[in-house]
Design a protein around this nucleic acid. Sequence first.
RNA 1: GGUUUCGUAGCUCAAUUGGAUAGAGCACCUGACUACGGAUCAGGAGGUUUGGGGUUCGAAUCCCUACGAGACCA
Length: 592
Amino acid sequence: MTIEAILKEDIKKAIQKNFDVAADDIILQPTKKEFEGFYTFVTFSLSKAARRAPAEIGQMIGADLEANSSVVSHFNVVQGFLNLSLKDTTWLELFDDIQTNPAFGTFPENGQSVMIEFSSPNTNKPLHLGHLRNDFLGESLAKILKASGFDVVKTCLVNDRGIHICKSMLAYKELGNSETPASSGLKGDHLAGKYYVLFDKEYKQQIAQLISDGMTEDLAKKNAPWMLAAQKLLLLWENNDADTVALWKKMNGWVYEGFSQTYNKIGVSFDKTYYESETYLLGKNIIEEGLQRGVFFRKKDNSVWIDLTAEGLDEKLVLRGDGTSVYITQDLGTTELKFSDYHSNRYLWVVGNEQDYHFKVLFAILKRLGRPYAEECYHISYGMVDLPSGKMKSREGTVVDADELVDQMVQTAADRTQELGKIDDFESTEAIKLYDQLALGALKYFLLKVDPKKRMLFNPEESIDFQGHTGPFVQYTYARIRSIIRKAEQAGLSAELPSPAYKLHQAERELIFSLSLYPSKVLSAANEFAPSLISLYVFELAKVYNQFYAEVSIFADPNPEAVKFRIALSKIVSETIHKALELLGIDVPERM
RNA sequence: GGUUUCGUAGCUCAAUUGGAUAGAGCACCUGACUACGGAUCAGGAGGUUUGGGGUUCGAAUCCCUACGAGACCA
């Protein structure tokens, strides 16, 4: 039983005994820093039932706990807030529980499986900053869910077909001169992206030309020669034209090579990749099934719809009049495919909040169709990443390229580290590894510290900061503790729990308290799909340790019990930082 | 136009889901055992939580309204 559970139980008893009131679930909150105590119970809501003033209730419960609870040492009451302090023996027991539990913060398998889809790039351009938030969220959530007991399958749905792909293919056919990644020295995804941009440039000129020849803008957009050619290419592709398919395969192959380099660098991987080219025809049979069962209806123009007004949504097209699919058709098919492949208990999609409506519709349709997995589908909707200059617009060239960004971060990490000159004895491979750890630590932390649901601003100058609320701050705390542990080992000092009579320093109590919060943070992060909870926690833990470090002396304390205890505390803090950062996909350096 | 999300210190974000005098980091001032790693720590200043109403013991949080921003649907 956790301390919190014991406290709740004791408070419940005290309420029952003193006021003859059956208390429902007791809620405890951490005591604010300006007051003494660690756990606070708020008594206002009891006031009516107990027919006493909140402060009086606090006094009575507090006195009862002080006398009878096995864990409470003393208390104070401020207005309706009862603040509780624990016995030192309780703190030591609590720490011992943490210390002796190698699985601290990870939960046993719960028998549930979950599939999480994320990243899902288009193969017509390289990854950018927006993908990074998605990738880091997905990768981190997968780890958090695993730690909380789920069996996790990571998937990626690659958008590898469609008109946008044909655009870059067309531009390449027209202007490519057989250029390859090898001949140009460009990464494959960047090469494909280059032709996508070239298409857009030429296309715009063609539109302008047609307009100046007297055509309306709408018509010009539809009739520009390159647009017509791209659409023709799409038809050829759909009809399996050998040359077209060959070009498509060649260019996509380059892109995949480029993507895998990037994923590798940033530590992202998938258990299963789906390709839209293999799934885009799925779903039509589901439409047929739904029509027969009366879930969908056909309009005069032969298009198929569903009426979701009862769910507060609109009528939604699910199949065009000419029998071709829309996005939702494909998603119905792909979800069915996932289910038949894995039979997972839950399905998650990490997709930007611009698609909130799309997913509401998708899930509503799945429910109408009575799919067994319909109730366990979740859209992990995250906010867009803005720049100080405003939104990222690929057409306006304001996107932040992922590869460039990572390279810049690595360079900055190298510069900072060399300025400080603490690792001048490192081999160059060690140094390079460290720069990567710091660069990605900073970047991942920056993107994961904000509540995923919220839109966030990416300020390039702040993101490369290594001080304050950053990944490297936490990494630094870890490295410093590791240095202490090494020193302790050299001195032959072991990590040991002191005798029950040991009088704890306040900084030690705060450290144990902070440590004890970790498992519940893992669970909340999993329940709320919010890695930010782990980010905020690990930063707080690092701060508490740094305060402890500044306030007490570890090796110089005259009491040998204190020395060994503080080594033990340090060790567990370093391990917890390690675990927490791991959940964020961030590496820890031994020295920096 | 319809639907929807949001608005917190100069800037970037928190606030245990309705609880205490709204907290951190950055930036700005002031300080820290000459070695347990200063990429650190301690302190100062900085707020009518966009404005206005309401609900109650209590509101950044819930309801209404105005303004502002984003997204989606045509």
